[in-house]
Simulated assay, not measured.
Amino acid sequence: MAYKAIIAGASGLIGSNLLTILLQQQQYSEVVVLVRKALPIRHPKLVQLIINFDDLDKYANAINGHALFSCLGTTRSQTPDTDEYRKIDHDYPVKLAQLAKNGGVKHFHFISAIGADRSSANSYLKLKGEVEHDIEMIGIPVLHIYRPAILNGERNTSRPAEKIFNFIFDIVNPLLIGGLKKYQSIKAPVLAWAMYKKSLDDTEGTFIHTTDKIKQIK
């Protein structure tokens, strides 16, 4: 059986790597990307939907198939407005999950962050925890939540602080052993590959993957 996948955030670090993988794999015959502007990519499997994420209901008929991968995200520096930031990091993924459930999508894959907890005193981790909870409450049969620490890879947008962290973690990673492995940095293609592999497993439930677990998925 060949599947249909939907990616929200296909222009970002993880989404772009995931898109490349899905287009190469025979298990997927159609890959729909929800984007604000067209990607400079052409492929027989690829369908690009140029959308306004504030009007996701208009595209409900296209949100069906096997798996939806939510790779959306922003930073405070990119989106300083608090309401807009919450909309991108919380409202859009939750709305996509609801539309996916309504459209019969069996899999939902969401990129969160290490330490996500809706009771956290840290506003970023609190928000990620809220998103995880709200998506889980929708009741999609197979929910995979990925909690990487530092993501390593080439982005389309400049994040100087992240580059510094990546350099530091290249040195620190070997020192993070045992229970500390989940705090290691992880390369974007490794996470994207894990998402693809888990999308082939129809075991129902909610599954949380930290960096140490993600790196074990082959």
Rank of each mutant, 00 (worst) to 15 (best):
Q27W: 02
K218I: 14
N122Q: 13
L23I: 09
A194P: 00
L13M: 15
S119A: 13
Q48M: 05
Y183M: 09
I63K: 02
K37L: 07
L56C: 09
Q216M: 14
K213T: 12
I145P: 01
A62D: 12
D117R: 02
P80L: 04
A2P: 08
T82N: 14
Q27G: 11
D134E: 15
I14C: 07
Q48K: 06
I177A: 05
I6S: 04
Y146S: 05
T82V: 13
A97D: 05
S11C: 08
E30N: 13
V172K: 04
A194M: 07
E30D: 12
D134I: 05
F108T: 02
S70T: 01
L39N: 02
V33Y: 03
P160E: 13
D57W: 11
G15N: 03
I177W: 09
A113N: 07
Y92A: 05
L96T: 00
A67V: 14
H209C: 04
L127Q: 08
L23N: 05
K106I: 07
E84F: 08
S158R: 09
L19I: 10
T79A: 12
Y196E: 00
F108E: 00
K37M: 06
L151Q: 02
I177C: 05
Q48C: 05
D91F: 07
C71I: 04
R159T: 09
K87C: 01
D201H: 08
A8H: 04
L176K: 11
A121W: 12
L22M: 13
D134S: 14
Y85D: 14
N64T: 15
C71L: 04
E84L: 13
V31N: 00
L96R: 01
P44N: 11
D117W: 00
L180A: 13
Q98S: 13
D117H: 06
A38F: 06
I21P: 06
L72E: 02
K95Q: 15
H90N: 06
E84M: 09
A5F: 11
A194L: 07
L176S: 10
K198S: 08
K213P: 03
Y124N: 07
Q78G: 12
P174I: 09
V105C: 04
L175Y: 14
V47K: 13
S158I: 07
G104P: 12
L175P: 01
W193Y: 15
K218N: 15
H43N: 11
